[in-house]
């Protein structure tokens, strides 16, 4: 993530990592999740679902920070994210303090 000014406690903050699940056959291809993903981790898939829409596909699985915005903006209950069990990102301080 790029900061205008790096927060003083940036190395103690643990950035959570999410796994995005997509229920493809519920999707109607409105693209809200793709447009409003803060990490631009989603994209329209080239394949069709059962109903003939292009569901989203995760292009940057490592970027998801589990913010759940795709989950709450989806009108179709078709996408959600869960916290990844491995909670630290590579390169981040191993001494993560409990917040």
């Amino acid at each position: 993530m790029e900061f205008w000014r790096v927060p003083l406690d940036a190395d103690t903050i643990q950035v959570s990592l999410g796994i995005v699940h997509i229920l493809e056959d519920r999707c109607k291809g409105c693209g809200y999740c793709i447009e409003y993903c803060p990490k631009q981790a989603l994209e329209f898939s080239t394949k069709f679902n059962q109903k003939g829409y292009h569901p989203p596909v995760v292009i940057k699985p490592d970027e998801c920070v589990n913010c759940h915005y795709c989950e709450i903006i989806c009108p179709e209950f078709a996408i959600f994210s869960v916290e990844c069990p491995q909670t630290t990102k590579p390169g981040q301080a191993e001494t993560n303090h409990a917040i």
Binding site: R26, K28, C30, Y53, C74, P75, E76, F77
Partner: peptide
């Protein structure tokens, strides 16, 4: 009953 009848892009689902 899902997928529901609301059109693609409709905000009611949200």
């Amino acid at each position: 009953r899902i997928p529901h009848i609301w059109c693609p892009g409709c905000g009611i689902g949200t």
